[in-house]
Computed example of a mutant assay.
Amino acid sequence: MALGGRIDHPPAAIDRVRLPADIGRRFLVFVDTEEEFDWAAPRRREAPATETIAAVPGAHRRLAAFGVRPIYLLDYPVAADPRAIGHLAPLLASGEAEIGAQLHPWVNPPHDEPLTERNSFVGNLPEALEQAKIRALTDRLTAGFGRRPIVYRAGRYGIGPHSARLLEAEGYRLDCSARALFDYSDEGGPDFSGRDAWPHWAGPARLLLELPLTSVFGGRLRRHGARLYRRADAVPRGRGLLARTGLLQRLPLTPEGTPLADACLAIRLALEEGLQLLSISFHSPSLVPGHTPYVRDAADLRRFYAWWDGVLDLLAREGVQPISAEALLAAAWRARATGLPLASAGPA
């Protein structure tokens, strides 16, 4: 077992999650449900606004019309705002949504660390402080919604060496903090560049299912993607040149920064590779123009919703159905416990 079930390093092949073949191909939608802030400015603890949460129910209805059961990952300012809870609680009560935790350490008590770039990745904090922040957020969500969350994401994908063990101990059973093929080490964060999008069991007792956000390589050299992509970073505009020439392009499955045509290509490539689970994600402030770099005006918002229309239509045509976190965990544990016929687990 590699590194005690940690999720900040590539996992061992033995920890790969296998799913019952009869569930087919599935996708999940995660929403980083968070306060508004200036993405280009230094992080602040003071006066976080959560006005864009009012736009979530409208967006939710559009997704629910396709049968999607989004997983809203709330950070502390949203979880502590009664108005935000008022917008989200009916979605949970209706059974059309699930609630999880997202930890932004700079706005999540206790505030015992200095505000630095490195400390914006919660996994870099001392173990006891990371644990205290996880507990504070978990308790706040439990109080707000009357049930304990079991899905977690570290803000900025900032998982660390102690995170899997702490999450497992706190009762979390699904983590989506890894972002396949991305490297945040230049900012002091984790390096997922060697990690693919296949789910794995994590934690000391392997009670935590780790589902990375889906990213794949496209282009004529995609079979050599991880190695070439790292090397291209050392050349000025090297990655852009690879993409423009059709040789190699990293394709994350998100409406934020990934054009619809590229997202559709990513889906087709992932399915060709036998990936049974697709993970899609976006930030809730993108639902109102002017709060993220991805949706700056009304035209961007129209493209955002057109992206969803196109992606969800393609998924339906390819027979990829939505699945909830609850149903995914039940299927994974059923396969693990009973040895049912399994779908392909992908490359070892």
Rank of each mutant, 00 (worst) to 15 (best):
P110G: 02
P110F: 05
P110W: 06
P110C: 05
H111A: 06
H111T: 04
H111L: 07
D112P: 04
D112G: 07
D112M: 03
D112K: 10
E113R: 01
E113F: 00
P114Q: 11
L115T: 09
L115C: 08
L115M: 00
L115S: 05
L115R: 10
L115Y: 03
T116V: 04
T116E: 01
T116N: 01
T116I: 00
E117G: 12
E117P: 08
E117T: 13
E117L: 14
E117Q: 14
R118M: 10
R118T: 13
N119L: 11
N119G: 08
N119P: 11
N119Q: 13
N119V: 09
N119H: 12
N119F: 11
S120R: 09
S120H: 13
V122Q: 08
G123Q: 07
G123Y: 05
G123W: 04
G123F: 11
G123H: 06
N124L: 02
N124I: 09
N124C: 12
N124S: 06
N124P: 07
N124T: 14
L125G: 02
L125Y: 01
L125N: 02
P126S: 03
P126Q: 04
E127A: 15
E127M: 06
A128D: 06
A128E: 10
A128P: 00
A128S: 10
L129T: 07
L129I: 07
L129W: 01
L129V: 00
L129Y: 01
L129R: 07
L129M: 08
E130L: 01
E130Y: 06
E130H: 07
E130A: 05
E130F: 03
Q131A: 15
Q131I: 10
A132C: 02
A132R: 04
A132I: 01
A132K: 04
A132F: 09
K133I: 03
K133R: 12
K133L: 02
K133C: 09
I134V: 09
I134D: 01
I134Y: 03
I134L: 03
I134R: 05
R135I: 11
R135V: 15
R135W: 11
R135C: 10
R135K: 14
A136S: 13
A136L: 08
A136H: 03
A136V: 06
L137F: 07
L137E: 00
L137W: 00
L137V: 04
T138N: 09
T138V: 12
T138E: 09
D139H: 12
D139V: 10
D139A: 09
D139M: 03
R140A: 15
R140F: 08
R140I: 06
R140W: 05
R140K: 10
L141S: 01
L141N: 02
T142I: 15
T142M: 12
T142F: 10
A143S: 13
A143R: 15
G144E: 08
F145N: 09
G146Q: 15
G146I: 15
G146V: 13
R147Y: 14
R147C: 15
R147H: 13
R148V: 11
R148Y: 07
P149T: 04
P149I: 02
P149N: 02
P149K: 00
P149C: 06
P149G: 05
P149W: 00
I150S: 12
I150V: 14
I150R: 15
I150Q: 12
I150T: 13
